[in-house]
Structures are given as C-alpha cells and as structure tokens.
Design a protein around this nucleic acid. Structure first.
Length: 873
RNA sequence: GCGGGCGUGGUGGAAUGGUAGACACACAGGACUUAAAAUCCUGAGAGGGUAUCCUCGUGCGGGUUCAAGUCCCGCCGCCCGCACCA
C-alpha cells in the first residue's frame, strides 16, 4: 500500500458532519447548574457588520483553542457568543438604503452567525443574545435605574460636535478635517446637558486594583494607569492685581509648583467662567472664544491645534516674587475639565507653555538645572527641560531638588491666606473624567427617565420597563428620530400624572458591552444577572480581544462590574482575570482613479520589474496602492474568509491564522501560506492512515530499540512544550512544535513499517495519538476524523489532554557551544551536569580553540552548566 | 501633541543575557510520472574560498558585559489609543 491509496481528506464532507454531531450531542452546551470546575473563555463579541473578516477568524480561532484545551483538561467550559448590536452603522445604513436598523442588524447577525458556525467553534449557542434584543436592553435599563438610585449616575453639561447645517450631533469619526462628513459644514462645539456614570469616584480604586491584574499584559496595565492619570499637585490661588476685575483670585492646579519662580503667564480655558465674564465687556475676547469653539471636541484635535491665546486686561500678583505680576491669557490648549480650568505657564519646563511663550514673546526663565549644566550659561530656546535637577533662579527654593522644592513651596503657600483662604492646598488629581453616556441617536438603549416640569427628572418605574424603541421611525432627516417622535416623546409623569417628556437620548454602546459577559452566565434571567451563577462563573478566566480596546472598553467594564456589585447584581470587582490582546489584522488599501476605495477582491496585482502595479479586475483601469491599515469597512480593505473556508475548509484556515504570527503582534494579511496549511492537513490525514495500517499489524518481538525510545522522547517533549505554549497562548510556537513532532513521526514510520516490534508499535501509537490530541484544539474536525481512524469510539474533544511523562523529558548528554571571545568556534558533547573543569578541558581540547589560543593559556574560561562555554583569550 | 507598542533572511517568524535564523511559506535542483498535480530527497542570511573555513550580519548611532536580537542612552520608521467608531 502506498500513500496514494488513501482518499484525500475532504473537509467539505467531514466538517459539516462533525459540526452536526457536536450540535446534536450538545457537546458544548453548559447547564444552568452551578459548575463544579468552571473555566470561562470569552472573545470580545463582534459588531454585526454583516460579514466576518479575518480579524474575527483570528480572534475566535484563538479563543476556541483555549476553550477546547481547557475542556480537554477537565474544566467545565463556558464559551458563549453574542452581538454588540447597537450603534451608528445601522442608522447610517437606514439613511443610505431605507432599511430599518432592526431589520438590517438582525439580517447581519444571521449572516455572520452562519459564517461563524462554519468555523466549527466550540460555542454554547444556546446562550446567544444581541444587545439590541429587547430582553437585553430591558435588563440594562434596570441596571441604569439601580445605578441612579445608588448615586452612581449624574447629569451635567458637556461638549459635543455640532453640525450647524445638519443640525445634529456628530461623533468624532464623523468630523473630518474640522467639517461634518455629510454636510461639509465647519463643526462647532456645543454644550448639552447629558447623563454620566460617575466613574471618577472610582479612580483611585480602579488604579490600585491594576496591581492585582497579574494575568493582564503589562502594556495594558500601563495604558490604564496613564489613562486614569493620578497626579499629586497643588491647587493655588493667584491674587488679581488689576483693580477692574470680576474676580479677586484665579485658582490654578499645577503638578509642578517647584517651577513657580519660572512662571511667566496665567492661562484660562476658553470655557472658564472668568473668561466668559471678561468677554461681556470685550468683543474681541468674544470672537476669540468663538474661534476656540469652532473646532471638534476630540482631544487630538485640540492638542495638535496651533497654540493660541488672547491677552486679557487682567494681571495677577506673583505669589513669591515681590512686586512682580503675570499677564492673564485665555488659551485654546487649556482644558476646562481638568484641574481648575486654569494654569500658570512655566515655559522653561513644559513644552506647551514654551510653544505658547515663544509665540507671544513671553519670558522663558529656567528654574531647574540639569545635573551637568552651568547655571550661568543654561538657556532654553525650543525645547523645554522636563528632567530632574536642582532648583535655581528661585529664591528660597534654590539648591533643592525637584521633589523637595515641591514640598517646600506647598508648605509655604498652605500657611498663607489669600482672600481668607489658604493660598495653596495639596490635591490629588485624576485625568479620568466621568463617563458621558448620552447619545442623541435612535439605535441604542433608551435611557429610562422622564422629564416633568413639576417633579424634575423622574425614573421610569421598574414595572413600566422596558422603554421600547418605537418601530415607526424615519431617517429622512439628520438628527435623532426619537426626538421628533411624538408617540415616544410625549408621556405622563409617573409621579404627578402631568404631561411630561420622555428622555430621547439613548445610551453609549460601551454600556452594552460593559456587562454582557455577566449576562452570559444567565442569559434568560428576568433580572440582569443571577448572582449565584454570575459569581460561580466570573471573573472571565481568559478574555481575548483586540489591543484597540485596551483602555475604554476594559476600563468601563471594570467600573461597571463594581457598580453592579454595589447594586447587588454580582459579588466581584474585576470582570477579567486573564486578558490577552491580539494584534490587528491589517491590509493594503486601494483607490481607483476617481478616489473611491476598492476591495482587495476587485484588484489584480502584478509585478512590473521591481514594482507592484495594481489594476481594477473589471475595468482594467489603474489602481493606486495605498497604506497598510487596520481592516475596516469604511476603507474596504477587509478580507472575507468565506471563500477561503469554502475552498480549504475551516481547519486549514484556523491552522493558517494560528500558525504564523505571534498572536499579540499585528499581521499584514496575505494568503501566501494557505496552500502550505492545506497540504499539512492532507499530510496528517495520510500519516494517520499509514500509521493505522502499521498499528494493525501483529508483532511479536519486543526490542528496546533506540529509535523507538527516541520517538517516545520526541513525542513527550512535544506534548510538554505544546501544553505550555497553548496555556501561554503562544499558538505559533505550539504549531512549530506540532510540525517537529509530525516530521519525527514521518521519519520513524517508514523506518519501522516493514517489520515493527511491539515497542515500535507502542511508540508509534503514542506519538500519533499525541499528535492528534494536540492538534485537536486547532483543527478539531480533522482531529475527530483521524481519531476515528485510530480506532476510538469516543470523540477526541471528550478525551482528556495527554500528559507528558517526565522520564522522557531529560537527556543524558548535552551539546554545548564553545565560544572564544564570544564567537562560536565549535561545540562539545558532554554528560548532562558535567563538572566545570571537565567541560573546560573538553572545550580547550578543540582544534579551533587551540588554534586561536596559539599556545597561550586563556585569561579566563566561563562555563555556564548545560549551556555554553566561553574562552576569554 | 500626549500615552502605549513594534522593527530579525525573499516572506511569516524562533531564540530563560549564552550556538541568531528553530518551524513554516516561497524559491531552486533532483527522484517518481508519457506529462502535470500530489509526494519524497537535497540546497539556501550576505560576501569570499575547491574545501576544512574566514569576514560581516537582528532599523540607525553609542554604551554595559566574558557574552547583547535580548539590558541602558539617543535617534529613525511603522502601528494602536486619545473619552460620540466599535
């Protein structure tokens, strides 16, 4: 019998078969009982854009490996799937295609569910829900009311991007170069009263708890720390020196009070009440403030804008330099919602202040001296000095280092009174702001409150929930259809019965995704959660998703879990015990000659000499190859894996996406290599069939042949390594190990096949079974098929994970590299744990070493046991 | 602008401070075949040499160390996030 006598493995037949089998046996369904040995694996649920892309495949393939692996290790695994289904694209589709957001969304979900199911994921589909399901947003409204009652919710004003032509609020991504994406109008900032979750009350707690998240990537913990942005500083009063002034003092917050002697101006936010007060008598200031408001609200926009200021008529007294005054500006780079909305500018030691001072001709006085600098000649021109050093040019602070100077100036100002108050108060500040959840949109969870002229803001009584989204809405005009829907908007006050107005804002979709993981533990419950079940399953043992969610989604979820604990819905603080952030899948972008984005499937690329040239497949017209970016629908650079799955099967595609790149790294998508994955699938199938034929032969001899021992060693070492790699989510390394095991079996099998001994057959069975068991989490359908060929009745997914026998993991001899002056010159084979002098002797005996030493004795010989020898000549 | 990350052959990548390039893809040569596909074998970082070998080499420039892809300092390039994209 030869290789060609076996039929090829046909995924088109086998994959649906196994999927149906798992489904019928409810293999991956978990009961509503309290689990004994729970393991909760969750991948970030997708937005139902309509089609999955390779980024999803990568994400869900990884999660599935973890789920199947933990299941094989005996855990009761919860591995659910749902849909992050509210959000803007559905409304955009409604406007563009006259299709209702609900219809569009559920059709997309159906299409994506089919695609996901073709991947053969070990999901418990019985727990599936979408956040736009009435049942889900009903419970979310319950949570909102509980949070409101617990004092976790507040109302205040904040700024939005306003499109003056479309008369609507724009998301940051809808503002392009300062203009509304649809109307092209210059965007303005506008204040609205909105709902907020008081996440800033939890700033310290959220910050401290980061220390306990030891199964999170260090980079994410750092990003969250920086985002919360705890800083210790001084709130201080500057006395206004100008007689005609609406205020006697200006309060600033600074983290660098040590640089006070270097202060050369005061800057107020354009939204500062004092700026508004001054503007009443100064038309030019009105214009300046208006100019500041003529831009978007995104931090990036504000911070990259050119630094601009307006000099007011006010001056303040310098607190520590007798007789000196500082001018007061209104400036576009000072944020009202951080600190007090006013700063003192020290150009020498803050880059923004320096840029501002250089633009307006303000003095730059260095007051911190770097270690080796000369105080007489040290000057600052274009680059502020923010490092450590000794304070100088600073009167009584001279000679102190930065920290001591901060303490001393704080002490001084604390004891002084200005306008009856201490001039300085030490204060801990956080960058983290409250979470604004109001959205002026239709396709979101309605905020369940009613506005009454007599009673104020009245929560909708729980027995009147859910507040449903009305079906009969129009998207012909921009703006929120709920706001112009009389049937929805007009209601009566639950308290006094008078005519009242329903809140027409809906919730930020981040709210939806801040507790879905808890809902999965009891997806049908009348209450938001069943605390006993939530507590049994949670926290999520392994959460997997894109690095782009490192801050907002994860931080909001951490807050939400605490808020749910306060309101009795769950008993834990942290939702995600283990976090893994996968890298982005990127692809080239393409544009045709009219500037329209083209999908990769519409483009043909060929090599003309050294250059890659792209043409439109249909029209043959030239295509511009653009930059490589994260796959997104708007730039059309997404790759739909459906064709690939149809052509090669899910296993090949899963194997392919897992095999090459380290999972945390971004990958530039290319199909190069899929053929190799496909061939590997066939190779495993062939190998198992060939092995199976040998396993069926009867043997009598029981030779302890070295080849079989070697085979067993290789197999056990592979299992050991693969187990550790999968547990550590290093899938690409696990794959490499699997290849090595496969290569070893491929050599071993033909060697023993003609006359196998009992030992050889045993070694072969162990090796091949280890191979199939270790590929099972990655290529589950192929593994089940092979497992059957090997004569098993029980499915491999129900079979316990193999254990490596420690006896096979050790070697008697080791090969050591021998270096001379750090350069490799040869190698020696010595007994494991051989004594230093022996190793040294063997190393010096090498020809190459002797030649370089040229008769001289070495200065030093470094022997690192079982690793390396370095001869220092 | 601020915060975080990444950078290794033709390609994806591997490497507790200890033999750089495991494993795979692509490629080339060979075997099998009427032929192709599939499969199997062999080769390969770059440069030099018949060969044993030698020199260079992990984005760039310095440094620490017996030893640096790995640690430190300074750059460059790319990617992610920046609170209304999800």
């Amino acid at each position: 019998m030869t290789a060609n006598d076996f039929e090829r493995y046909n995924p088109r037949e086998k994959e649906p078969f196994w999927q149906k089998t798992w489904d019928e046996k409810e293999t991956f369904t978990v009961s509503d009982e309290i689990p004994a040995d729970p393991y909760y694996v969750l991948e970030m649920f997708p937005y139902p854009s309509g089609r999955i892309h390779v980024g999803h495949v990568r994400n869900y393939a990884m999660g599935d490996v973890v789920a199947r692996f933990q299941r094989a290790r005996g855990k009761t695994v919860l591995h659910p799937m749902g849909w992050d289904a509210f959000g803007m694209p559905a409304e955009n589709a409604a406007m563009a295609n006259k299709v209702h957001p609900r219809e569009w969304t559920y059709a997309n979900i159906a299409a994506m569910r089919t695609q996901l199911q073709s991947m053969g994921l070990s999901l418990d589909w019985s727990r599936e829900f979408a956040t736009c399901d009435e049942a889900y947003y009903h419970r979310q409204q319950m949570l909102f009311l509980d949070f409101l009652e617990a004092g976790l919710v507040t109302r205040k004003t904040s700024k939005v991007n306003w499109d003056p032509v479309d008369q609507t609020v724009l998301a940051n991504e809808q503002v392009i170069d300062g203009r509304g994406w649809r109307s092209g109008a210059l965007v303005e900032q506008r204040e609205l009263t909105q709902w907020f979750f008081k996440i800033s009350d939890f700033a310290e707690e959220l910050l401290e708890a980061i220390d306990g998240l030891d199964n999170w990537p260090e980079k994410v913990r750092l990003m969250q720390q920086n985002w919360i942005g705890r800083s210790e500083g001084l709130r201080m009063l500057f006395e206004v020196a100008t007689e005609q002034s609406p205020a006697k003092t200006i309060e600033v917050f600074t983290t660098r009070p040590d640089t006070l002697f270097g202060a050369s101006f005061i800057a107020l936010s354009a939204d500062h009440p004092l700026a508004a007060e001054l503007a009443k008598t100064d038309p030019a200031l009105v214009d300046f403030i208006a100019e500041c408001h003529r831009m978007g609200t995104a931090a990036e926009t504000i911070e990259t804008a050119e630094k601009k200021g307006f000099k007011t008529t006010l001056e303040v007294k310098h607190p520590v330099i007798e007789g000196a005054t500082l001018p007061v500006y209104v400036a576009n780079f000072v944020l009202m919602d951080y600190g007090t909305g006013a700063i003192f500018g020290c150009p020498g030691h803050d880059q923004r202040d320096l840029d501002f001072a250089n633009a307006y001709g303000l003095p730059v006085i260095p007051v911190i001296l770097p270690e080796d600098a000369d105080p007489k000649s040290f000057t600052i021109t274009d680059e502020a000095y923010t490092g450590p050093g000794k304070v100088f040019n600073s009167g009584f602070l001279d000679g102190l280092d930065v920290e001591d100077a901060k303490a001393k100036i704080a002490q001084t100002l604390e004891t002084r009174l200005v306008d009856g108050k201490p001039q300085g108060v030490r204060q801990t500040n956080y960058r983290l702001r409250d979470w604004g959840i109001s959205r002026q949109r239709y396709w979101g969870c309605p905020i369940p409150v009613i506005h009454c002229d007599h009673c104020g803001v009245v929560p909708v009584p729980k027995d009147q929930l859910p507040v449903r989204l009305p079906e009969d809405v129009e998207f012909d005009t921009p703006g929120n259809p709920l706001d112009r829907h009389p049937g929805f908007r007009n209601t009566t006050c639950p308290e006094c019965g008078a005519e009242a107005r329903r809140e027409t804002d809906t919730m930020d979709t981040f709210v939806d995704s801040s507790w879905y993981f808890a809902r999965f533990t009891a997806p049908g419950a009348e209450t938001p959660t069943v605390p006993a079940l939530a507590n049994a399953w949670m926290p999520v043992d392994q959460y997997i998703g894109g690095i782009e969610h490192a801050i907002l989604h994860l931080l909001y979820s951490r807050f939400f879990t605490r808020a749910m604990k306060k309101t009795g819905h769950i008993g834990i603080d942290e939702p995600f015990k283990g976090l893994f952030t996968q890298g982005m899948v990127t692809h080239e972008t393409y544009k045709d000659d009219s500037g329209q984005w083209l999908a990769p499937t519409e483009v043909a690329i060929e090599m003309v000499g050294e250059e890659r040239v792209a043409r439109h497949i249909g029209t043959g017209k030239p295509v511009t190859i653009g930059s490589v970016e994260k796959m997104s629908k708007s730039k059309r650079n997404v790759i739909d894996p459906e064709d690939m799955i149809a052509a090669y099967g899910a296993d090949t595609v899963r194997w392919f996406v897992l095999s090459d790149s380290p999972p945390e790294r971004d990958v530039q998508w290319t199909e190069a290599g899929i053929e190799g994955a496909w061939r590997y699938v066939q190779r495993v199938w062939r190998l198992v069939n060939e092995a199976s034929a040998v396993l069926d032969t009867s043997a009598e001899t029981l030779d302890e042949d070295p080849a079989s021992i070697e085979m067993l060693k290789t197999a056990h070492k592979a299992v050991d390594q693969i187990t550790r790699d999968i547990a550590g989510l290093r899938f690409n390394r696990a794959v490499a190990q699997v290849y090595e095991l496969t290569n070893a079996i491929s050599k071993f099998l033909p060697a023993i096949a003609p006359a196998p001994s009992l030992t050889a057959i045993k070694a072969l069975r162990t090796s091949v079974e280890f191979l199939i068991q270790t590929i099972a989490p990655m290529m589950p359908h192929l593994a089940e098929s092979c497992w059957g060929v090997l004569g098993h009745d029980r499915m491999v997914c129900d079979t316990p994970w193999p254990e490596a026998d420690p006896r096979y993991l050790v070697d008697d001899t080791v090969v050591l590299a021998v270096q001379v002056n750090g350069k490799r010159r040869g190698e020696i084979s010595v007994a494991k744990d051989a004594a230093g002098p022996q190793v040294e002797e063997a190393a010096l005996a090498l020809d190459a070493v002797a030649r370089i030493l040229d008769g001289k004795s070495p200065k030093k010989v470094i022997v690192v046991p079982n690793r390396i020898v370095n001869v220092v000549a």
